[in-house]
Design a protein around this nucleic acid. Structure first.
Lengths: 118, 118
DNA sequence: CGGGATCCGTCTTGATACTG
DNA sequence: CAGTATCAAGACGGATCCCG
């Protein structure tokens, strides 16, 4: 919960301390590449993340200033999650992984392109 | 141990099924960016991986054809680990993460450059 | 001595059920 | 809709042991 001590000063190790698990980068994928913003949108992804895991990862990402939580201006009951600039800078990591998968894992394909603005 | 069923056909999710944990990409970093080849060299990295974890990750990487195990021709008692072409193609993922860390995590720095051949 | 395997306590993960 | 609570299963880590 409270941020762990870093394991080294290696930039890769530090990045992995934030996103080195099976779910965090999928949440960022949904947010950065697919434009998702709501809890139930993340839940609906085909990998089937559990609600507690999603809740935990969103909280960590918020704590690490990669994601900001706010309310939908059109419907104050809805919570929305948006990437910060720091979070958006993970796009190259995601695209590098996507490219690796497309070339090296048979049967993979990208899902939806980013949605058009409005 | 036996390869898990994939969670989806997303290339990112499939990549994460292979390297989505806190240690696997550090082993690949040592191998691909620092030129390490031996068990005790990986153990010596500053993050301090445990022997059982290292053993497990090397076995998985071998199973997934990202790494090949062989013997040092100069000393048949030594085991050496080398990346396959499939493994080497993870370099862009590692460099993207390295770049993210360098820009976004204070105090990070790259360690050694790749060793010169021979 | 290098390269692990095994044991075991602890921490983390994740599926499911439930709630405001 | 957006989460908590519960609880089992698994991953981790470290110490130790093993084997050529």
């Amino acid at each position: 919960m409270t941020s762990q001590a870093r394991r080294s000063n290696c930039p890769i190790a530090c990045a992995l301390d934030l996103v080195g698990d099976r779910w965090t980068l999928l949440v960022l994928r949904d947010m950065l590449l697919l434009g998702k913003t709501r809890f139930d949108e993340f839940l609906a992804s085909p990998e089937g993340i559990a609600t507690n895991i999603l809740s935990d990862r969103l909280a960590r990402l918020e704590e690490e200033k990669l994601v900001e939580r706010s309310r939908d201006p059109d419907d104050g009951r809805r919570v929305i999650y948006r990437p910060t600039e720091r979070g958006k800078s993970f796009v190259p990591v995601l695209t590098a992984m996507r490219d690796w998968g497309l070339k090296n894992v048979e049967g993979t394909r990208v899902f939806a392109p980013p949605r058009a603005k409005r």
